[in-house]
Simulated scan of single mutants.
Amino acid sequence: MDAFFASVEQRDFPALRGKPVAVGYAEARGVVAAASYEARAYGVRSAMPSVSARRRCPDLIFVPPRFDVYRAVSHQIRAIFADYTPLIEPLSLDEAYLDVTEDLRGIGVATIIAEEIRARIRAETGLTASAGVSYNKFLAKLASDQNKPDGCCVVTPARGPAFVAALPVRRFHGVGPVTAAKMERLGIATGADLRACSLAFLQAHFGSSGAYYYRAARGEDDRPVRADRPYKSVGAERTFDSDLHSEAELAGQLARIADAAWVRVTRAEVAGRTVTLKVRFQDFRTITRAHSVTPPVDDPARFLAIGMDLLSALLPAPKGIRLLGLTLSGLDARAEQPQLGLPI
């Protein structure tokens, strides 16, 4: 879906259309859950602190999230998917993989299926979606971002290797900012650079992820679409520009991290029994502290409160803290929750 949460707000409240909108709270500890394309033009992004977003876009309009509404729309969209295939692997409220091999409507061409689904989403929800059509999950994911918003990108088997070669490595699913920076230090900026690296070189520098990067650079991915894909944990973390010492600063940062993590928890439609705090100190020593509860954590205030308790037990931190993370695991669904070829 295109800027899903923000697009739902602009759909339901016409006065917001064409304006820079952020779903979230404007207060000092708030975090942007989603940004409209008008806001993105100013550099506003999800998981950004609200104060930073306001600094980039002084006219930014904040609207509080309505997760029940987003969840209801998500279920409406999944019902459309189910008319075309039983193999639906949701990644979040606004994104999913579909294996259309079974092709319940007998359409026979994956691109036509994608365009029909996009047209139905627009007609039935008033929202736009972008699609990536390809022969594996890795390439479909990349393609889905290629022509946003309201676009469709098709990557055929013949085009796959060249499509990957031309992309910056930071666009690869599984390559985060830290890994991208490390790759660039090694002279790896594009898919073509990555493909030029041997498997031994990538494993030496990236450990067990090296084999994945080696295959990805060649457009290879044999993961099936799993309708029952389980989440193991959901969370967020942040490395600070300078080490933090005061309890007030650390509490404020943990609140922002908890907000960002809870957006992902909500999108995953889960509740969890274990909250884990990750702390990296100034000397790079990293520890985790966890607390398990019953019943499962299913609201953001309780999630943050447990995280704050775990953090308080580690303070004061005279050496300073350079990273905090907060994760929910022991997950349960809060709501309903080899590939063959089909012509592209």
Rank of each mutant, 00 (worst) to 15 (best):
E184S: 11
E247V: 10
E9M: 12
A114F: 01
R170Q: 14
V155H: 03
A189L: 10
A140Q: 03
A165E: 12
R55E: 14
C153W: 08
K141N: 07
L326A: 08
L314H: 09
E220T: 11
E38N: 09
E9P: 08
A236V: 00
A335E: 10
P230L: 10
A211H: 13
A236T: 00
A82C: 03
Q339D: 09
E89H: 06
D12N: 15
R273M: 06
P296Q: 00
G151Y: 07
R218Q: 15
H291R: 15
F284L: 11
T274G: 03
T125W: 11
A143M: 11
C153M: 14
M308G: 08
N147D: 15
L16G: 09
A333Y: 03
F284P: 02
L186T: 00
E95M: 05
D145H: 13
M1E: 06
F81S: 01
F281I: 03
P300R: 12
A200M: 05
N147E: 15
A35H: 07
A305G: 06
T111K: 08
R334T: 14
R289N: 02
E9C: 10
R159S: 15
L323Q: 06
D222F: 07
T276A: 01
A35L: 07
I80V: 15
P343M: 01
M308E: 14
G30F: 05
D259Q: 14
K148T: 06
P230Y: 04
F201R: 12
M48C: 13
G30Y: 09
S144K: 11
Y135Q: 13
E247C: 04
C197P: 00
H291P: 00
V23T: 09
Y42Q: 01
R54Q: 15
Y70L: 02
T111F: 00
T156Y: 09
E336N: 11
Y213N: 02
R17C: 07
G132H: 06
A313E: 15
L311P: 01
P230S: 09
V133A: 05
P296R: 01
A140M: 04
P224A: 07
R118L: 11
Y213M: 13
R185V: 08
A96L: 09
A260M: 01
G132V: 08
P20F: 05
T276P: 01
A268Q: 03
F67E: 04
G219R: 10
S46T: 12
A162T: 13
S312T: 15
S144Y: 09
R159G: 11
V164R: 09
D145P: 05
I77P: 04
F138M: 12
A166L: 11
